[in-house]
Design a protein around this nucleic acid. Structure first.
Length: 594
RNA sequence: GGCCCCGUAGCUCAGGGGAUAGAGCGACCGCCUCCUAAGCGGUAGGUCACAGGUUCGAAUCCUGUCGGGGCCGCCA
């Protein structure tokens, strides 16, 4: 008696691990109904996972150990009873109790062959999850100041944010990618003054790049563009006459440059929000007034920070946000001594704006140097959403550059400013993205120019792309041998022929993909995708090489079309998962390596 | 002084309550008349910084210590 529809399976996009977990939970519920287990047990910690050691089986559950104490029973006794129930399922071959109460399961080859079929049927959608269905998430990232080109640090944030957004999308969330343009602070006035000097230069005058101005060459074309637009009409005028116009012009030029940089990396934003637009519309005052209405804004004194005191510290009364009411360590000023807003004030308005746009979750991706800023941002969102919207801040740790094995200091002044464009033009977007995503966001990243530029086997991206290219090569060979190997044909292959242990091992790895997507999305950890792809590629390379010795394991079987198609289907399913995974990382799957 | 991140093999790093802790690089030994050797198999290499605590069970959670990095009103 076959199960009409095994629990947890939704159409072709299956997750065998959650299916078997559902079976375990059902079996435990049956035991409760029979009185073998007490009612009302908390099952949330019951897990079904691949065991660390493959010798233990295909899957393992900790159910008996988790439930032993609340049920007041011996874990091994629970495991024995559960094993008897599970063994009745047609997908389960053996269920053995081991160690302190683990239950090790072995599944039928048909179960694993079914995964290959499901992967081919779903294509690149295999592994898509409904986990985030109905959840609107805003991912704000990059948000580099519009005062110059993006550098390597921005690059890591851009790549991480883009991949995280893609991952959440794959896990079913409704995702918005957003860039916050800091086009209202003092830094854009500095930009305007710097551009003005380049404008003077374009008009044949010698520029005065004073201390504190931006000296970069990238402003020279901006100066020329200003000359083209304004001729000599802005020369010898007071700053007040040209500042606003030049600021707007230069900011727009910088944003065009940043958009071009992002395009180079393959990053596309859905929304650009302007700090100036928010400020000009009076929303800062509105936000502060709202907080004041909640008694979260007050006039008061801050204690001097302990330890190293700023030279010009003086205690004085100022306008403060009571962020301590929402988890911060101290209250935070929203006004400077001259009465103008601090940087924080427009950020309050901006985050309120995001809350009002109806997101269920906000994610900010910031550089690690903004670590001291996290608690106050969370406090703002907590206060202005009445605790409804969680804000997650992902801090991106430093990128440490190495060249010739030596640490490489970046300095605008010394002209050793390494831009995103430098990196991408030399290493390529694929390598840059993969390397930067093969590390979790909260660990510092060593970026070794030699290794990245070398494009050698040290680069895991090539290893993964090579696996994909090998599959493409097999399919080309099959076509030459007159074997139909299009996806439609492969989807109807005789999967029961995939009976060799080495082939089933690859199918098991493919089966982990939907589970891994959910784990990575839940933890907001795109690096897990990169590591998984590496492991999956390794399985494929291993199987490939076994084909050298055991010709029966080669994908193309001379004179045996059904066998070839089954084996090619396995290879193709692997490639489909690699392609989907690389798609999340924003890396191109290679058709061939040249 | 306070806050955040990190400390796992010689090096670079995964794993973040579960069984005998993993991978790459480097070292050593093997594998191309055979679908791309940019690949594969194997050997060697560990006090999971340290000390307490919680737990049936801790590299993983909690507290503290040490070491490295980042940050701490009037920059953004």
């Amino acid at each position: 008696m076959a199960l009409a529809c095994p629990a947890g399976t939704k159409g072709p996009i299956m997750n065998l691990f959650s299916d078997i977990r559902a079976l375990v939970i059902d079996s435990l519920a049956a035991m409760q109904a029979e009185g073998a287990l007490p009612a009302g047990l908390d099952m949330t910690n019951v897990a079904v996972e691949p065991p660390r050691d493959a010798a233990h089986g295909d899957m393992a559950t900790n159910a008996a150990m988790v439930l032993a104490k609340p049920a007041g029973q011996n874990p091994r006794a629970i495991a024995e009873a559960l094993a008897a129930k599970l063994a009745a399922d047609p997908r389960i071959v053996t269920a053995e109790v081991a160690g302190p109460g683990f239950l090790n399961l072995r599944l039928t080859p048909a179960a694993w062959q079914g995964v290959v079929a499901a992967a081919l049927a779903a294509g690149r959608d295999f592994g898509r999850s409904a986990m985030g269905r109905g959840v609107k998430v805003n991912v704000e990232f990059v948000s580099a100041n519009p005062t110059g080109p993006m550098h390597v640090g921005h690059t890591r944030g851009a790549v991480f944010g883009d991949a995280l957004a893609a991952l959440l999308d794959f896990a079913g969330h409704e995702v918005t990618r957003e860039y916050y343009i800091n086009d209202a602070g003092a830094q854009v006035d500095v930009l305007a003054r710097s551009a003005y000097e380049r404008y003077r230069e374009a008009n044949g005058l010698s520029p005065e790049i004073r201390e504190g101005l931006y000296p970069g060459d990238y402003l020279i074309p901006v100066g020329e563009a200003l000359k083209a637009k304004y001729g000599t009409s802005l020369l010898d005028r007071h700053e007040g006459d040209w500042l606003a116009e030049v600021r707007e012009f230069a900011t727009a030029e910088m944003m065009a440059m940043i958009r071009a940089d992002l395009a180079l990396l393959g990053v596309k934003m859905d929304v650009f929000s302007s700090e100036r637009a928010i400020t000009a519309s009076g929303r800062v005052e509105e936000a502060i007034a709202t907080l004041r209405g909640m008694d979260l804004i007050y006039e008061g004194m801050l204690e001097a920070p302990k330890g190293k005191l700023p030279d010009d510290w003086e205690e004085r009364e100022q306008t403060l946000f009571r962020s301590t009411a929402h988890g911060d360590d101290v209250d935070r000023p929203v006004k400077k001594s001259d009465g103008s807003w601090t940087y924080f004030a427009p950020d309050i308005a901006y985050h309120w704006d995001k809350v009002k746009r109806g997101y269920d979750q906000l994610i900010d991706i910031l550089g690690a140097d903004h670590g001291g800023y996290v608690k106050r941002l969370k406090a703002v969102v907590s206060a202005l959403s009445a605790g409804r919207v969680p804000l997650e801040v992902k801090l991106i740790q430093m990128v440490k550059l190495y060249k010739n094995g030596e640490p490489f200091k970046m300095s605008k002044r010394a002209g050793t400013f390494v831009t995103l464009r430098d990196v991408v033009e030399q290493a390529g977007a694929d390598v840059t993205r993969f390397v930067m995503l093969t590390r979790k966001n909260d660990a510092a990243l060593d970026f070794d120019f030699d290794k990245v530029l070398e494009q050698s086997k040290d680069n895991p991206v090539f290893y993964v792309q090579y696996a994909h290219a090998r599959v493409c090569s097999v399919i080309r060979k099959a076509a030459e041998a007159g074997i139909a190997a299009d996806d439609t044909t492969l989807a109807r292959a005789d999967f029961a022929r995939l009976s060799h242990e080495a082939e089933l091992a690859l199918a098991r790895k493919i089966a982990e993909w939907p589970r891994l997507v959910e784990i990575a999305a839940r933890g907001q950890e795109p690096h897990r995708i990169a590591f998984y792809l590496y492991e999956l590629a390794s399985e494929l390379h291993g199987l490939w090489n076994r084909g050298n010795e055991e010709t029966g394991l080669r994908f193309v079987q001379d004179g045996n079309i059904p066998a070839s198609q089954a084996k090619i289907a396995l290879a193709r399913a692997t490639a489909v998962v690699i392609s989907a995974g690389l798609g999340i990382l924003g890396v191109t799957p290679a058709e061939e390596m040249r």
